[in-house]
Nucleic acid binder design. Structure first.
Length: 566
DNA sequence: GGAATTCGCCAC
DNA sequence: AAACGTGGCGAATTCC
């Protein structure tokens, strides 16, 4: 059962059943309290309804404030984005209004928040922006139902409609989870975080001065150089190193490590601490942690590969040192579930390479792989990563030859993807997420004649180099994007299974999602059953995505009080 | 003086 | 040991 829903912006809204087997549409309901109506219906149907709406981020966030939870949805904007990308139109406007305009041959409005383009008037600030961009003379519910029907039709026409439908379902489920996780927040002990900062940097300075430890290091660094140097400035550092007779090509840590001079350890320490202070220092703490929770703002499908991005807060780059501040509430526990060696396992599954699939039955995939590399597990790992990322330099070449010999079909799979990229073609994940096409500039550089290529840019762009670079991108895309969708299916399965758990000690929640890792915050009393559900969810994801593959996707699961111990 | 770019490090 | 994919983000620097 699918029900299209639009909000009236004042807590109420309109709903209509769509696509029921009776043919034709159900009756229209007009409700004063949308969240109440949806909650009633969820309960009445046992969570089998799928809510069709313009944008989960917009509508579900508002509904979450009334502590509503829905099981399933169809996010028109996210699905539109997937469909556009499938047909090589990645990045075109995807809002309900844009999809409706395309359907009716009208002028397509840009997505809200997107740059309106040069010369356009800045957005008036007197009114709330119309996030769905349906023209005022068009009924939004009607537009929603039309676009949804059109999307269903477009999905049905694809070569693998059920795979793509699964992708749409889990992308939408991800959107629900992202809103719920932002609502729940990661349990965060500001006092512990502050203690870490004080321990590392010294007492918090007042005003904009450097913390004591950084200030001291900066002074000693300048003393070593024999002149005033701002260690935050790469340009000043390069000059300073040249002046003391140790020229460096850059000030990256690995380049400095090769310089034998007493200033180097000071500088490396400074860089490490300065990073902590700038990225996850007291300013971050004040800005992002409230009432014991860190609430990241996820962007579902924000990365071309289908991984999530975040808006501010750097939730996907929380450094190891500050994870000590992530602590479960009293009588609660954190469950971290990490899909180990996910990408090589994905390669084994999608390529159908029987030798690699056999290796992927092991808990440590690289252990059986090592046999092909004279028992050297490290070399096997480098070889696999080189195959998936397209590394050719260093000592990758002989390793890749061995890979081609031992796992020909797997190598063929990534090599095909790389060739497609080099030729400017699109590549797709297992469920149908599609790479963006190469830019017009890329086409000019790679396919255009030399005069045109030499035309733009002071340095002559090298067509072959650009082509190889895109080949590396598409080579990796087919793996990373499929890994991302396995993780989404897994997350959607966990999310659904959590609702079946005992809530008498409190409601278990997903609180963090990072590419191939999921963190739950659950009452200690139900930790064991939660772990069991997580394991079954991974098994469910494997079957849903790949059917009867022999490849295993083992989880590293840690039940911990503190995230740093995971 | 604000916007865009560069550099460098963090995560996976 | 270092050039191999996806990103976010902050400070310095450069552009306009």
């Amino acid at each position: 059962m699918r029900i299209a829903v639009v909000s009236d912006g004042h807590g109420g809204g309109r709903l209509r059943e769509v696509g029921s087997s009776d043919a034709g549409e159900g009756s229209l309901w007009r409700v004063g309290h949308l969240s109440g109506a949806i909650a009633d219906y969820e309960e009445h149907t046992g969570g089998t309804a799928r809510w069709v709406w313009a944008s989960t981020e917009e509508l579900y966030s508002a509904l979450m404030d009334h502590s509503l939870r829905v099981s399933r949805c169809h996010d028109v904007a996210l699905v539109e984005s997937l469909l556009l990308a499938y047909h090589g139109r990645c990045g075109e406007p995807r809002s309900l209004g844009a999809a409706w305009a395309r359907l009716h041959g009208r002028e397509v409005p840009p997505d809200p928040g997107q740059r309106p383009g040069e010369g356009a008037e800045p957005q008036p600030t007197l009114f709330e922006p119309d996030l769905c961009t349906v023209p005022p003379d068009v009924d939004r519910l009607t537009a929603l139902i039309e676009v949804h029907a059109d999307q269903q039709r477009r999905i049905a026409e694809l070569p693998h409609p059920s795979r793509f439908a699964l992708l749409c379902a889990v992308e939408s489920a991800g959107a629900l989870a992202a809103v719920e996780m932002a609502h729940a927040g990661v349990p965060w002990r500001a006092d512990v975080h502050d203690a870490i900062l004080t321990e590392q940097l010294g007492p918090r300075p007042t005003g904009a001065t450097r913390p004591p430890v950084l200030a001291d290091l900066a002074t000693r660094i300048s003393a070593e150089f024999g002149r005033d140097v701002n260690p935050d400035s790469p340009a000043q550092l390069v000059k300073a190193f040249a002046a003391i007779g140790h020229p460096v090509e850059s000030t990256r840590s690995w380049a400095l490590e090769r310089v034998d001079h007493p200033v180097v350890p000071l500088l490396l320490r400074y860089k490490e601490l300065a990073r902590l202070h700038a990225a996850n220092g007291w300013t971050w703490l004040e800005q992002w942690v409230r009432h014991g929770r860190f609430r990241p703002d996820y962007i579902v499908g924000g990365v071309v590969s289908g991984r999530w991005a975040t808006r501010g807060g750097g939730a996907l780059q929380i450094p190891k040192v500050v994870r000590r501040a992530v602590v479960a509430d009293p009588d609660w526990t954190l469950i971290s579930a990490d899909a180990g060696q996910l990408e090589p396992r994905i390669l084994a599954a999608v390529s159908g390479d029987t030798a690699l699939a056999t290796a992927a039955k092991a808990d440590d995939l690289y252990a059986p792989l090592a046999d092909a590399f004279g028992g050297d597990r490290d070399r096997a790992k480098v070889a696999m990563i080189s195959a998936m990322y397209g590394q050719t330099g260093g000592d990758a070449a002989p390793l890749l030859r061995t890979m081609r010999h031992a796992y020909p079909r797997a190598m063929e799979y990534v090599d095909d993807a790389a060739r497609a990229g080099e030729e400017g073609r699109l590549v797709r994940s297992w469920l149908g997420r599609t790479s963006p096409p190469p830019s017009a500039m890329w086409r000019r550089i790679v396919f255009g004649d030399d005069v045109a290529a030499a035309d733009n840019g002071r340095e002559r762009p090298d067509g072959a180099r650009q082509a190889r670079s895109r080949g590396r991108f598409t080579r990796n895309f087919v793996i990373q994007a499929t890994a991302a969708e396995w993780a989404l299916v897994f997350m959607a399965a966990v999310r659904r299974r959590l609702t079946g758990l005992d809530t008498s000690h409190g409601v278990p929640q997903m609180v963090f999602f990072q590419h191939d890792e999921l963190v739950l915050h659950v009452p200690q009393a139900i930790a064991d059953s939660a772990v069991e559900q997580v394991r079954e969810a991974a098994e469910e994801a494997r079957t849903l995505v790949f059917g009867a593959t022999p490849v295993r996707f083992p989880l590293d699961i840690a039940v911990v009080e503190c995230y740093a111990d995971a």
